[in-house]
Amino acid sequence: MSSLIELENVGKRYGNIIALSGVTTSVEAGEVTCVLGDNGAGKSTFIKILAGVHQHDEGEVRLEGSPVKFNSPRESLSSGIATVYQDLAMVPLMSVWRNFFMGAEPTKGVWPFRWIDEGEAKRIAKQELAKMGIDIRDTEQPVGTLSGGERQSVAIARAVYFGAKVLILDEPTSALGVKQSGVVLKYIIAARDRGLGVIFITHNPHHAYPVGDRFMILNRGKSLGNFAKSELPRDELVKMMAGGAELDQLTHELENA
């Protein structure tokens, strides 16, 4: 059985700028792969390759064993890769259930008299959110009135419901408070337990470590390595994230200043 997604020596150039090179990692069903890196480390490029926004020009991406190259976000989506972006792709003035089904509303009747099955949509939205352990007061509520964590959870539940095999989360906790981050981490676990492969992109090792099964650290467009959790103690991860030797240097400079 091959992995859900495998990346082997994947690289990407924008003109003469090497945005990403030599990235190797894998995502298994029912596991969380964390991609860590500071600003400018290449996380966005990594996501965009998998989401079909950009195409890699080195190495190979394999989806369930066969090599793929996504030419558009739709292609990626229809292959079962759902990306939850930081800005969440939600319409604040619209209700939770409408956002949940946006673009794929269940309908009744025959064209041209085809209408949205509102009752069914509300029922499914409520039920799917509940399955993820998300407690929404009322699916008629506009998304704009939800908190950041709640919005994130709706976005995750939506991706899970629409048959995603792989869920890519772009910095889901970066704009959230402590408790909210905890809630989102819970949803990551919930998605994992439902058999999805999760790619969790973050710059916070303390968020990554408790939920991750596999860690890939990016720095300046290069992979610093791809580790299973057993190979990598927490402190080691934190240190790598912080940039090890570079940070020594920085600390030194700051102390002597």
């Binding site: 402590v178 408790k179 905890g182 819970k186 916070n204 303390h206 408790p210 934190v238 912080a242 600390t251």
Partner: peptide
Amino acid sequence: AGETIVSGDDVNNGLSFTEEGMDDIEEVV
């Protein structure tokens, strides 16, 4: 140096999540 960063992160996030920490979150939901 790593420790320095950990405490720095603690200041920012108030809490660093550990496996035990995850259990507390249970009550949040």
